[in-house]
Design a protein around this nucleic acid. Structure first.
Length: 546
RNA sequence: GCGCCUGUAGCUCAGUUGGAUAGAGCAACUGCCUUCUAAGCAGUGGGCCAGGGGUUCGAAUCCCUUCAGGCGCGCCA
């Protein structure tokens, strides 16, 4: 619907000899102002040195005559307000029904290759809620970009090198020794959760008493590998149960073994962005707007964590992606400038890396905050929440807010299968439509999937309002994709469900009037198409029955 | 001290990238199941958009500033 209007406006403006790019089209808050509105006349006013009303009048005279509109009004300081004709709306509705997903999703990606990296939880323990939120956002974004014609690859970066996995290995090793009756100190910043002991038991099952009398240094490689792989398996299982799937898993260790870290630094040195100073090797990130230059090789010869990150992002670019999306915890926001500096140093525009920051999730239980102590290894895991309230509810709740705003989840509310829980509200609308279809088949012998002909004139005003809401979805979807914001879809779905439920209560779909029944069934088909598409984007099930 | 994010109804949050009279859910109160599912519906109240200044036809939205909260500022990961 918005696409049509846009085209009409562009044509009208070029007919007037006005170059038109990026015409603003918006949905007025007040229905009295029509279905769509554009402030374009006011914006052009200064440039054309004409009053907005005159410009608006010129535009209107170019367009009038089209039977797509019931009215075109000029109002306020120079808004042009459009109200579509019933004929046009019904025509669009038929296109939605016959076209389905292809009607909804414009191909704005045009095959552009996007890599989206998310979760990337350290394989040193179970995932927490923040990881879950990142997973939900990443998966939803991937679905959206895919549907919008991008070629998307989802990747999990495995931090299997460095201090953290070593600490995990040593923590497990200490517990393992304990199991064998040998006293061994837990490392200073070691991991203390119960799962460490579980992995130690598995280590014992696998290796027996093989490491009983040797030091960690001698056994470290095998133990570390064993330990983080166990954790990675657990993470993979949690993600699978959460319904989030990755295309590729990139190992940090591999970047070292394939010499890519060194290559990356040499490459940047060749470009003049890596230099030596005070015994260390530095990346000149200030060249690209960072606060200070960053050390990549310490004066003791060790790489900083930043070095493999550089190599990783360089590798992604070399793999030929047009755009990179990283989803990080918001506490890492300080790293955005230096990472974007890397991208630029490698000769790519700053915005070819988009970093989406995901804020913390705080957990409440019946209104009371649940305390989480990471030090004691006590925190609510994603696994517990999924087991408690199910993957669909969890995902939906994670996608109800802008990702960079704090999120509170009350576990008691989420568990309640009631109106407090927005997931069910949306899913219920979908299931409800399915019930109607069953009824239609049983009583009227009408198969909702089978018919495409119906008399749109039979739709009443209330139904047209609902149809218009449906026809807005392609625009909502497009804007959500462009802004990379899944929550816009979540909101839209709640609004749509909030219109369908009341409609359901006021009007019976399946009646003795065969023609009216068909028209209303068509409306239900259309609502269902949109609900299903939206829920699919969010990675949430669209149940036939509840 | 510097930087980033946040501040909108009692609570949790949207607000179409600067548009017209500010929105939803929850909570509170009142009603509705002989019906295609009550996981639903109908109705009622609720606001100095943190404060101040500016930019312009027009600001919750952009700029400056103050206040409050969160996070980040290592040759830690």
């Amino acid at each position: 619907m918005e696409r049509k209007l846009r085209k009409i406006l562009v044509d009208a403006l070029s007919g007037l000899g006005i170059p038109a790019d990026n015409i603003e089209i918006e949905v007025p808050k007040d229905a009295l102002h029509g279905d769509f509105s554009t402030p374009v006349a006011m914006i052009l006013s200064k440039q054309l040195k004409k009053s907005p009303k005159i410009i608006a009048e010129d535009i209107r005279s170019k367009i009038s005559g089209s039977d797509s509109f019931e009215s075109i009004e000029i109002a306020g300081p120079g808004f042009i307000n459009f109200r579509f004709s019933k004929k046009f709306i019904v025509l669009q509705m038929k296109e939605l029904i016959s076209g389905g997903d292809s009607f909804i999703a414009e191909n704005i990606g045009r095959g552009k290759r996007v890599q989206i990296e998310f979760v990337s939880a350290n394989p040193t323990g179970p995932m927490h809620l923040g990881h879950g939120r990142g997973a939900a956002v990443g998966a939803a974004l991937s679905n959206m970009l895919n549907a919008a014609g991008y070629s998307v690859e989802k990747e999990f970066y495995v931090n299997d090198a460095g201090r953290q996995v070593k600490l995990l290995g040593e923590s497990v090793f200490a517990r393992y020794k304990e199991l064998l009756g040998v006293s061994y100190p837990l490392p200073e910043d070691g991991y203390r959760g119960d799962y460490v002991g579980d992995v130690a038991k598995e280590l014992k099952n696998e290796y027996g008493e093989q490491f009983k009398s040797i030091d960690f240094d001698k056994a470290s490689e095998a133990v570390i590998d064993f330990a983080y792989n166990r954790m990675l398996d657990a993470i993979k299982k949690d993600l699978a149960d959460f319904g989030v799937h990755f295309d590729t898993w990139q190992s940090e260790k591999e970047l070292y073994s394939l010499n890519k870290v060194q290559q990356a630094l040499e490459d940047l040195r060749g470009k003049g962005f890596v230099f030596d100073n005070e015994g260390a090797v530095w990346f000149k990130s200030t060249e690209f707007g960072d606060d200070k230059d960053r050390v990549v090789v310490k004066n003791n010869g060790d790489y900083t964590y930043f070095a493999p990150d550089i190599a990783y992002h360089r590798d992604k670019i070399l793999r030929g992606f047009d755009e990179l999306i990283d989803i990080w915890g918001a506490d890492h926001h300080g790293y955005v400038p230096r990472m974007q500096a890397v991208i630029q140093a490698l000769g790519h525009p700053k915005d070819s890396l988009k970093v989406i920051l995901v804020q913390m999730v705080s957990l409440l239980k019946a209104g009371q905050p649940v305390q989480m102590s990471k030090r004691a290894g006590e925190f609510i895991t994603l696994r517990e929440v999924i087991d408690d309230i199910g993957p669909d509810t969890t995902k939906f709740l994670f996608l109800t807010r802008r990702s960079d705003s704090h999120l509170e989840v009350d576990i008691e509310v989420a568990k309640a299968q009631s109106s407090e829980n927005p997931v069910y509200y949306v899913q219920y609308a979908h299931a409800r439509i399915n019930s109607i279809f069953a009824k239609a088949k049983e009583e009227a012998g009408l198969s909702a999937e089978a018919f495409s002909e119906f008399d749109g004139e039979l739709l009443n005003d209330e139904e047209l309002v609902l149809v218009k809401k449906l026809l807005l979805y392609p625009m909502v979807f497009k804007n959500a994709v462009l802004a990379r914001e899944p929550h816009r879809i979540t909101y839209y779905l709640q609004e749509l469900a909030g219109m369908f439920h009341p409609y359901y209560h006021r009007h019976k779909v399946v009646t003795d009037d065969a023609e009216l029944t068909k028209a209303r069934l068509a409306l239900c088909v259309a609502v269902k198409i949109v609900l299903k598409h939206g829920l699919e984007m969010l990675g949430v099930a669209a149940p036939q029955k509840m």
